[in-house]
Design a protein around this nucleic acid. Structure first.
Length: 427
DNA sequence: TCTGGGGTCCTAGGACCC
DNA sequence: TCTGGGGTCCTAGGACCC
Protein backbone atom coordinates (compact mmCIF):
# COMPACT_ATOMS: atom_id res chain seq x y z
CA UNK A 1 0.00 0.00 0.00
CA UNK A 2 2.66 2.46 1.01
CA UNK A 3 5.05 1.20 -1.62
CA UNK A 4 4.08 3.73 -4.27
CA UNK A 5 4.01 6.74 -1.97
CA UNK A 6 5.87 9.73 -3.20
CA UNK A 7 8.87 10.67 -1.07
CA UNK A 8 11.46 13.23 -2.06
CA UNK A 9 14.68 14.36 -0.42
CA UNK A 10 16.49 17.64 -0.80
CA UNK A 11 20.25 17.51 -0.43
CA UNK A 12 21.91 20.84 0.28
CA UNK A 13 25.62 21.46 0.73
CA UNK A 14 26.39 23.42 3.89
CA UNK A 15 28.01 26.82 3.25
CA UNK A 16 29.04 25.41 -0.11
CA UNK A 17 31.67 27.84 -1.40
CA UNK A 18 33.37 28.14 1.98
CA UNK A 19 33.28 24.36 2.35
CA UNK A 20 34.96 23.97 -1.06
CA UNK A 21 37.76 26.30 -0.05
CA UNK A 22 38.25 24.42 3.20
CA UNK A 23 38.71 21.09 1.44
CA UNK A 24 41.93 22.40 -0.07
CA UNK A 25 42.95 24.72 2.73
CA UNK A 26 42.27 23.07 6.09
CA UNK A 27 43.79 26.06 7.87
CA UNK A 28 40.42 27.70 7.31
CA UNK A 29 38.69 25.07 9.48
CA UNK A 30 37.11 26.60 12.55
CA UNK A 31 37.96 30.12 11.45
CA UNK A 32 35.28 32.59 10.41
CA UNK A 33 35.46 32.60 6.61
CA UNK A 34 33.53 34.31 3.80
CA UNK A 35 33.58 34.09 0.01
CA UNK A 36 32.86 37.19 -2.08
CA UNK A 37 30.91 37.76 -5.29
CA UNK A 38 32.57 38.79 -8.53
CA UNK A 39 34.67 41.92 -8.25
CA UNK A 40 35.07 41.12 -4.55
CA UNK A 41 31.80 42.95 -3.91
CA UNK A 42 29.32 41.18 -1.65
CA UNK A 43 29.44 38.26 0.75
CA UNK A 44 27.85 35.23 -0.93
CA UNK A 45 28.95 32.37 1.31
CA UNK A 46 29.64 32.34 5.05
CA UNK A 47 31.01 29.75 7.45
CA UNK A 48 29.01 29.08 10.61
CA UNK A 49 31.54 31.14 12.57
CA UNK A 50 31.05 34.11 10.26
CA UNK A 51 27.25 33.84 10.56
CA UNK A 52 27.58 33.82 14.32
CA UNK A 53 29.62 37.02 14.27
CA UNK A 54 26.75 38.64 12.40
CA UNK A 55 27.97 38.87 8.81
CA UNK A 56 24.77 39.07 6.74
CA UNK A 57 24.25 37.34 3.41
CA UNK A 58 24.74 39.68 0.46
CA UNK A 59 26.28 42.53 2.44
CA UNK A 60 29.03 44.55 0.69
CA UNK A 61 32.29 43.54 2.29
CA UNK A 62 33.51 47.11 2.74
CA UNK A 63 30.72 47.60 5.22
CA UNK A 64 32.12 44.80 7.40
CA UNK A 65 35.69 45.99 7.56
CA UNK A 66 35.61 46.44 11.32
CA UNK A 67 34.24 42.98 12.00
CA UNK A 68 36.70 41.47 9.55
CA UNK A 69 39.64 42.97 11.40
CA UNK A 70 38.32 42.40 14.88
CA UNK A 71 37.54 38.71 14.34
CA UNK A 72 40.27 38.00 11.78
CA UNK A 73 37.68 36.84 9.27
CA UNK A 74 39.20 35.04 6.30
CA UNK A 75 38.02 36.73 3.11
CA UNK A 76 38.24 34.97 -0.27
CA UNK A 77 37.36 35.84 -3.87
CA UNK A 78 35.07 33.35 -5.56
CA UNK A 79 36.58 30.57 -7.64
CA UNK A 80 33.76 29.21 -9.77
CA UNK A 81 35.86 26.67 -11.62
CA UNK A 82 36.69 25.05 -8.31
CA UNK A 83 33.07 25.14 -7.08
CA UNK A 84 31.77 23.73 -10.36
CA UNK A 85 34.15 20.83 -10.13
CA UNK A 86 33.34 20.10 -6.48
CA UNK A 87 29.63 20.29 -7.31
CA UNK A 88 30.15 17.70 -10.02
CA UNK A 89 31.81 15.36 -7.51
CA UNK A 90 28.99 15.74 -5.01
CA UNK A 91 26.32 15.10 -7.66
CA UNK A 92 28.16 12.09 -9.01
CA UNK A 93 28.36 10.59 -5.54
CA UNK A 94 24.67 11.25 -4.88
CA UNK A 95 23.67 9.63 -8.15
CA UNK A 96 25.40 6.43 -7.11
CA UNK A 97 23.03 6.25 -4.14
CA UNK A 98 19.98 7.41 -6.05
CA UNK A 99 19.86 7.49 -9.85
CA UNK A 100 16.61 9.46 -9.81
CA UNK A 101 18.25 12.79 -9.17
CA UNK A 102 17.42 16.33 -10.19
CA UNK A 103 20.40 18.67 -10.00
CA UNK A 104 18.64 21.80 -8.87
CA UNK A 105 21.55 24.20 -8.43
CA UNK A 106 25.29 24.19 -7.92
CA UNK A 107 24.84 22.99 -4.34
CA UNK A 108 21.41 21.35 -4.23
CA UNK A 109 19.78 18.21 -5.57
CA UNK A 110 16.41 16.50 -5.21
CA UNK A 111 16.39 12.71 -4.88
CA UNK A 112 13.38 10.46 -5.31
CA UNK A 113 12.86 7.86 -2.62
CA UNK A 114 9.30 6.99 -3.62
CA UNK A 115 8.30 3.57 -2.42
CA UNK A 116 11.00 3.28 0.24
CA UNK A 117 10.15 2.73 3.90
CA UNK A 118 10.45 6.12 5.67
CA UNK A 119 12.40 4.47 8.49
CA UNK A 120 14.96 3.08 6.10
CA UNK A 121 15.27 6.37 4.32
CA UNK A 122 16.67 8.10 7.38
CA UNK A 123 19.47 5.59 7.78
CA UNK A 124 20.17 5.63 4.09
CA UNK A 125 20.45 9.43 4.15
CA UNK A 126 22.87 9.29 7.05
CA UNK A 127 25.01 6.95 5.00
CA UNK A 128 24.87 9.34 2.05
CA UNK A 129 25.90 12.25 4.28
CA UNK A 130 28.84 10.32 5.67
CA UNK A 131 29.96 9.15 2.25
CA UNK A 132 29.85 12.57 0.58
CA UNK A 133 31.90 13.99 3.44
CA UNK A 134 34.45 11.20 3.17
CA UNK A 135 34.79 11.12 -0.61
CA UNK A 136 34.40 14.78 -1.49
CA UNK A 137 34.99 16.56 1.81
CA UNK A 138 31.76 18.56 1.66
CA UNK A 139 29.25 18.49 4.55
CA UNK A 140 25.61 18.20 3.47
CA UNK A 141 22.15 18.33 5.03
CA UNK A 142 19.15 16.31 3.87
CA UNK A 143 15.46 17.10 4.26
CA UNK A 144 12.79 14.54 3.39
CA UNK A 145 9.07 14.91 2.74
CA UNK A 146 6.12 13.99 0.50
CA UNK A 147 6.62 17.11 -1.68
CA UNK A 148 9.53 19.26 -2.78
CA UNK A 149 8.34 22.19 -0.70
CA UNK A 150 8.07 20.06 2.45
CA UNK A 151 11.49 18.55 1.73
CA UNK A 152 12.80 22.11 1.63
CA UNK A 153 11.19 22.85 4.99
CA UNK A 154 12.68 19.66 6.41
CA UNK A 155 16.09 20.59 5.06
CA UNK A 156 16.01 23.93 6.87
CA UNK A 157 15.26 22.16 10.11
CA UNK A 158 18.02 19.61 9.54
CA UNK A 159 20.51 22.38 8.94
CA UNK A 160 19.38 24.53 11.83
CA UNK A 161 19.59 21.71 14.34
CA UNK A 162 22.62 19.81 13.08
CA UNK A 163 23.40 18.39 16.52
CA UNK A 164 19.96 16.99 17.22
CA UNK A 165 19.18 15.80 13.70
CA UNK A 166 22.59 14.64 12.52
CA UNK A 167 21.93 16.66 9.38
CA UNK A 168 18.92 14.54 8.36
CA UNK A 169 15.28 15.43 9.04
CA UNK A 170 12.17 13.66 7.80
CA UNK A 171 8.73 15.28 7.60
CA UNK A 172 7.03 12.24 6.09
CA UNK A 173 4.44 10.98 8.60
CA UNK A 174 5.68 13.49 11.13
CA UNK A 175 3.36 13.34 14.17
CA UNK A 176 3.46 17.04 14.84
CA UNK A 177 3.68 18.64 11.43
CA UNK A 178 1.36 21.52 12.34
CA UNK A 179 3.74 22.57 15.09
CA UNK A 180 6.70 22.36 12.71
CA UNK A 181 4.96 24.52 10.13
CA UNK A 182 3.82 26.98 12.74
CA UNK A 183 7.43 27.55 13.74
CA UNK A 184 8.41 28.23 10.13
CA UNK A 185 8.31 31.91 9.22
CA UNK A 186 6.34 32.49 6.02
CA UNK A 187 9.24 34.21 4.25
CA UNK A 188 11.41 31.14 4.77
CA UNK A 189 9.25 28.95 2.56
CA UNK A 190 10.49 27.99 -0.87
CA UNK A 191 8.62 30.17 -3.38
CA UNK A 192 7.78 32.97 -0.95
CA UNK A 193 10.18 35.85 -1.56
CA UNK A 194 10.45 39.35 -0.17
CA UNK A 195 7.36 40.84 -1.85
CA UNK A 196 5.00 37.97 -1.15
CA UNK A 197 6.28 37.73 2.41
CA UNK A 198 5.53 41.39 2.99
CA UNK A 199 2.07 41.05 1.51
CA UNK A 200 1.24 37.91 3.49
CA UNK A 201 2.36 39.34 6.81
CA UNK A 202 0.34 42.47 6.18
CA UNK A 203 -2.64 40.17 5.83
CA UNK A 204 -1.92 38.22 8.99
CA UNK A 205 -0.33 35.18 7.38
CA UNK A 206 2.83 34.89 9.43
CA UNK A 207 3.92 31.26 9.19
CA UNK A 208 3.81 28.16 7.00
CA UNK A 209 0.82 26.71 8.84
CA UNK A 210 -1.30 29.79 8.16
CA UNK A 211 -0.21 29.83 4.52
CA UNK A 212 -1.08 26.15 4.16
CA UNK A 213 -4.57 26.77 5.53
CA UNK A 214 -5.36 29.92 3.54
CA UNK A 215 -8.29 29.70 1.08
CA UNK A 216 -7.35 28.64 -2.45
CA UNK A 217 -9.23 31.43 -4.12
CA UNK A 218 -7.53 34.12 -2.08
CA UNK A 219 -4.11 32.60 -2.72
CA UNK A 220 -4.70 32.35 -6.45
CA UNK A 221 -5.94 35.89 -6.69
CA UNK A 222 -3.10 37.47 -4.77
CA UNK A 223 -0.14 35.15 -5.30
CA UNK A 224 -1.06 33.66 -8.70
CA UNK A 225 -0.96 29.93 -9.30
CA UNK A 226 2.58 29.87 -7.98
CA UNK A 227 1.46 30.74 -4.46
CA UNK A 228 -1.41 28.30 -4.64
CA UNK A 229 0.92 25.51 -5.62
CA UNK A 230 3.12 26.30 -2.65
CA UNK A 231 0.16 26.02 -0.28
CA UNK A 232 -0.93 22.74 -1.88
CA UNK A 233 2.57 21.36 -1.51
CA UNK A 234 2.55 22.31 2.17
CA UNK A 235 -0.65 20.24 2.44
CA UNK A 236 1.28 17.28 1.06
CA UNK A 237 -0.16 17.48 -2.45
CA UNK A 238 2.70 17.21 -4.90
CA UNK A 239 2.47 19.87 -7.64
CA UNK A 240 6.11 20.31 -8.59
CA UNK A 241 7.53 17.24 -10.24
CA UNK A 242 11.11 16.03 -10.13
CA UNK A 243 12.93 16.91 -13.33
CA UNK A 244 15.43 14.17 -13.79
CA UNK A 245 16.30 14.96 -17.39
CA UNK A 246 18.61 17.95 -17.72
CA UNK A 247 16.67 20.47 -19.73
CA UNK A 248 18.28 22.77 -22.23
CA UNK A 249 18.37 26.42 -21.29
CA UNK A 250 15.77 28.63 -22.94
CA UNK A 251 18.01 31.66 -22.78
CA UNK A 252 21.72 32.09 -22.13
CA UNK A 253 23.00 35.32 -20.64
CA UNK A 254 26.45 36.59 -19.74
CA UNK A 255 27.11 39.86 -17.97
CA UNK A 256 29.67 41.40 -15.62
CA UNK A 257 30.30 44.47 -13.61
CA UNK A 258 33.60 45.95 -14.69
CA UNK A 259 36.67 46.26 -12.49
CA UNK A 260 36.80 49.95 -13.43
CA UNK A 261 34.25 52.13 -15.19
CA UNK A 262 34.44 52.19 -18.99
CA UNK A 263 33.90 55.23 -21.22
CA UNK A 264 34.52 54.34 -24.86
CA UNK A 265 32.62 52.29 -27.38
CA UNK A 266 35.85 50.43 -28.12
CA UNK A 267 36.15 49.17 -24.56
CA UNK A 268 32.49 48.18 -24.43
CA UNK A 269 32.85 46.40 -27.75
CA UNK A 270 35.55 44.21 -26.26
CA UNK A 271 33.50 43.36 -23.20
CA UNK A 272 30.31 42.60 -25.16
CA UNK A 273 32.27 40.59 -27.68
CA UNK A 274 33.72 38.51 -24.85
CA UNK A 275 30.29 37.92 -23.30
CA UNK A 276 28.96 36.71 -26.65
CA UNK A 277 31.93 34.37 -26.98
CA UNK A 278 31.24 32.87 -23.54
CA UNK A 279 27.52 32.48 -24.16
CA UNK A 280 28.22 31.02 -27.60
CA UNK A 281 30.36 28.29 -26.10
CA UNK A 282 27.50 27.30 -23.84
CA UNK A 283 25.02 27.56 -26.70
CA UNK A 284 26.97 25.08 -28.81
CA UNK A 285 27.57 22.79 -25.86
CA UNK A 286 23.83 22.31 -25.48
CA UNK A 287 23.52 21.97 -29.27
CA UNK A 288 21.32 24.98 -29.83
CA UNK A 289 21.11 27.96 -32.13
CA UNK A 290 20.03 31.44 -31.12
CA UNK A 291 17.44 33.37 -33.10
CA UNK A 292 17.90 36.59 -31.18
CA UNK A 293 20.31 38.54 -29.07
CA UNK A 294 19.71 41.17 -26.41
CA UNK A 295 22.38 43.70 -25.40
CA UNK A 296 22.31 46.02 -22.39
CA UNK A 297 24.55 48.60 -20.70
CA UNK A 298 24.26 50.21 -17.26
CA UNK A 299 26.01 53.23 -15.79
CA UNK A 300 27.39 53.16 -12.27
CA UNK A 301 24.39 53.70 -9.96
CA UNK A 302 26.63 54.42 -6.98
CA UNK A 303 28.45 57.34 -8.56
CA UNK A 304 27.80 60.89 -9.61
CA UNK A 305 27.12 61.60 -13.24
CA UNK A 306 24.28 60.82 -15.62
CA UNK A 307 22.32 57.66 -14.87
CA UNK A 308 21.90 55.57 -17.93
CA UNK A 309 20.35 52.22 -18.69
CA UNK A 310 19.55 51.03 -22.15
CA UNK A 311 19.07 47.80 -24.02
CA UNK A 312 18.24 46.55 -27.47
CA UNK A 313 16.87 43.29 -28.87
CA UNK A 314 17.88 42.05 -32.29
CA UNK A 315 16.16 39.30 -34.21
CA UNK A 316 18.70 37.47 -36.34
CA UNK A 317 18.01 36.71 -40.00
CA UNK A 318 18.73 33.06 -39.30
CA UNK A 319 19.26 31.12 -36.07
CA UNK A 320 22.98 30.64 -35.60
CA UNK A 321 25.74 29.55 -33.24
CA UNK A 322 28.53 31.09 -35.28
CA UNK A 323 30.48 33.33 -32.96
CA UNK A 324 31.49 35.93 -35.57
CA UNK A 325 27.90 36.32 -36.65
CA UNK A 326 26.60 36.67 -33.10
CA UNK A 327 29.28 39.22 -32.24
CA UNK A 328 28.55 41.17 -35.39
CA UNK A 329 24.89 41.70 -34.49
CA UNK A 330 25.64 42.31 -30.83
CA UNK A 331 28.09 45.09 -31.67
CA UNK A 332 25.67 46.64 -34.15
CA UNK A 333 23.11 46.72 -31.36
CA UNK A 334 25.56 48.10 -28.85
CA UNK A 335 26.38 50.97 -31.18
CA UNK A 336 22.74 52.07 -31.19
CA UNK A 337 22.52 52.29 -27.39
CA UNK A 338 25.97 53.74 -26.70
CA UNK A 339 26.06 57.33 -25.40
CA UNK A 340 29.15 59.49 -24.97
CA UNK A 341 29.99 60.75 -21.51
CA UNK A 342 28.50 57.90 -19.49
CA UNK A 343 30.55 55.97 -16.93
CA UNK A 344 29.62 52.40 -17.75
CA UNK A 345 29.71 49.98 -14.85
CA UNK A 346 28.20 46.89 -16.36
CA UNK A 347 27.14 45.35 -19.64
CA UNK A 348 25.68 42.06 -20.73
CA UNK A 349 24.05 40.02 -23.44
CA UNK A 350 21.26 37.45 -23.63
CA UNK A 351 20.86 34.86 -26.36
CA UNK A 352 17.18 34.01 -26.78
CA UNK A 353 14.87 32.16 -29.14
CA UNK A 354 16.99 29.03 -28.79
CA UNK A 355 16.25 26.13 -31.13
CA UNK A 356 17.94 22.74 -31.57
CA UNK A 357 20.87 22.85 -34.00
CA UNK A 358 19.73 19.84 -35.99
CA UNK A 359 16.63 21.27 -37.60
CA UNK A 360 17.23 21.05 -41.29
CA UNK A 361 16.04 23.99 -43.34
CA UNK A 362 14.87 27.08 -41.53
CA UNK A 363 14.41 29.49 -44.34
CA UNK A 364 14.20 28.69 -48.01
CA UNK A 365 16.31 31.63 -49.07
CA UNK A 366 19.01 31.71 -46.40
CA UNK A 367 21.77 29.18 -46.22
CA UNK A 368 21.19 27.44 -42.91
CA UNK A 369 23.88 27.21 -40.28
CA UNK A 370 23.66 23.51 -39.47
CA UNK A 371 25.85 21.29 -41.56
CA UNK A 372 27.73 24.21 -43.02
CA UNK A 373 31.46 24.83 -43.16
CA UNK A 374 30.95 27.36 -40.40
CA UNK A 375 29.61 24.74 -38.07
CA UNK A 376 32.78 22.71 -38.57
CA UNK A 377 34.83 25.77 -37.77
CA UNK A 378 33.02 26.23 -34.48
CA UNK A 379 33.49 22.59 -33.59
CA UNK A 380 37.24 22.89 -34.06
CA UNK A 381 37.33 26.07 -31.99
CA UNK A 382 35.45 24.43 -29.12
CA UNK A 383 37.66 21.36 -29.19
CA UNK A 384 40.82 23.45 -28.97
CA UNK A 385 39.51 25.54 -26.10
CA UNK A 386 38.35 22.47 -24.21
CA UNK A 387 41.66 20.72 -24.64
CA UNK A 388 44.09 23.56 -24.08
CA UNK A 389 42.03 25.74 -21.78
CA UNK A 390 39.57 28.53 -22.21
CA UNK A 391 40.61 31.44 -24.40
CA UNK A 392 43.36 29.57 -26.18
CA UNK A 393 41.68 30.75 -29.36
CA UNK A 394 39.26 33.68 -29.28
CA UNK A 395 37.86 36.35 -31.58
CA UNK A 396 40.13 39.35 -32.04
CA UNK A 397 37.23 41.65 -31.17
CA UNK A 398 37.42 40.44 -27.57
CA UNK A 399 40.61 42.48 -27.24
CA UNK A 400 43.84 41.54 -25.53
CA UNK A 401 44.05 44.29 -22.96
CA UNK A 402 40.78 43.47 -21.14
CA UNK A 403 40.54 46.65 -19.18
CA UNK A 404 37.04 45.67 -18.07
CA UNK A 405 37.98 42.49 -16.32
CA UNK A 406 37.05 41.78 -12.73
CA UNK A 407 38.91 42.41 -9.56
CA UNK A 408 39.67 39.20 -7.73
CA UNK A 409 42.42 39.83 -5.25
CA UNK A 410 41.99 36.86 -2.96
CA UNK A 411 41.29 33.98 -5.26
CA UNK A 412 42.42 30.50 -4.35
CA UNK A 413 44.50 28.53 -6.89
CA UNK A 414 42.94 26.04 -9.31
CA UNK A 415 43.32 22.94 -7.21
CA UNK A 416 41.20 20.38 -8.96
CA UNK A 417 41.65 18.14 -11.95
CA UNK A 418 39.16 15.74 -13.46
CA UNK A 419 37.63 13.47 -10.87
CA UNK A 420 37.67 10.17 -12.65
CA UNK A 421 38.24 7.65 -9.89
CA UNK A 422 35.12 6.82 -7.96
CA UNK A 423 35.80 4.98 -4.72
CA UNK A 424 33.87 1.81 -4.03
CA UNK A 425 30.61 2.09 -2.13
CA UNK A 426 30.86 0.43 1.27
CA UNK A 427 27.63 -0.02 3.16
C1' DT B 1 -19.91 56.69 -39.83
C1' DC B 2 -19.47 53.62 -36.54
C1' DT B 3 -18.29 49.52 -34.59
C1' DG B 4 -18.58 42.60 -31.50
C1' DG B 5 -16.40 39.11 -29.39
C1' DG B 6 -13.12 35.75 -28.94
C1' DG B 7 -8.72 33.52 -29.74
C1' DT B 8 -3.71 33.67 -30.14
C1' DC B 9 0.71 35.41 -30.04
C1' DC B 10 4.21 38.44 -28.34
C1' DT B 11 6.43 41.37 -25.02
C1' DA B 12 7.49 43.79 -20.83
C1' DG B 13 7.65 43.59 -16.22
C1' DG B 14 7.46 41.51 -11.88
C1' DA B 15 7.85 37.77 -8.96
C1' DC B 16 10.77 33.94 -7.58
C1' DC B 17 15.11 30.72 -7.14
C1' DC B 18 20.26 29.77 -5.85
C1' DT C 1 37.99 53.14 -2.68
C1' DC C 2 34.54 49.13 -2.39
C1' DT C 3 27.52 47.09 -3.70
C1' DG C 4 27.09 39.52 -8.02
C1' DG C 5 25.49 36.69 -11.83
C1' DG C 6 22.46 33.45 -14.18
C1' DG C 7 18.26 31.66 -14.66
C1' DT C 8 12.64 30.44 -14.69
C1' DC C 9 7.74 31.21 -14.64
C1' DC C 10 3.44 33.95 -14.67
C1' DT C 11 0.41 37.78 -15.94
C1' DA C 12 -1.39 41.80 -18.14
C1' DG C 13 -1.93 44.26 -22.06
C1' DG C 14 -1.42 45.25 -26.91
C1' DA C 15 -1.54 43.72 -31.73
C1' DC C 16 -3.65 41.13 -34.90
C1' DC C 17 -6.89 37.97 -36.99
C1' DC C 18 -11.41 36.16 -38.17
Amino acid sequence: MSSDRKIVALVDCNNFYVSCERVFNPKLDGKPTVVLSNNDGCVISRSDEAKLIGIEMGVPIFKCQELVEKHKIQVLSSNYVLYGDMSHRVMKTLSIFCPEIEIYSIDEAFLSFSGMDPEEINNYCRLITKTVLKWVGIPISIGIGPTKTLAKVANKIAKKNKRATGGVFNLTDHPDIDKVLENMEVGGIWGIGRQYSKFLKKNGVMNALQLRDSPDEWLHKNLTVVGMRTALELRGVSCIELEIMQKNKKAIGRSRSFGTDLFTLDELNQAVSTFVTMAGEYLRKQKSLAAGIHVFVISNPFKEGPRYFNSVSINLPRPTALVSELINYALQGLKTIFREGVKYKKAGILLFGLVPDDITQLDFFLPSYPGSKEKKLMEVLDIINTKYGRNTVYPLSNGVERKWKMRQLKKSPSYTTNWTEIPEVKT
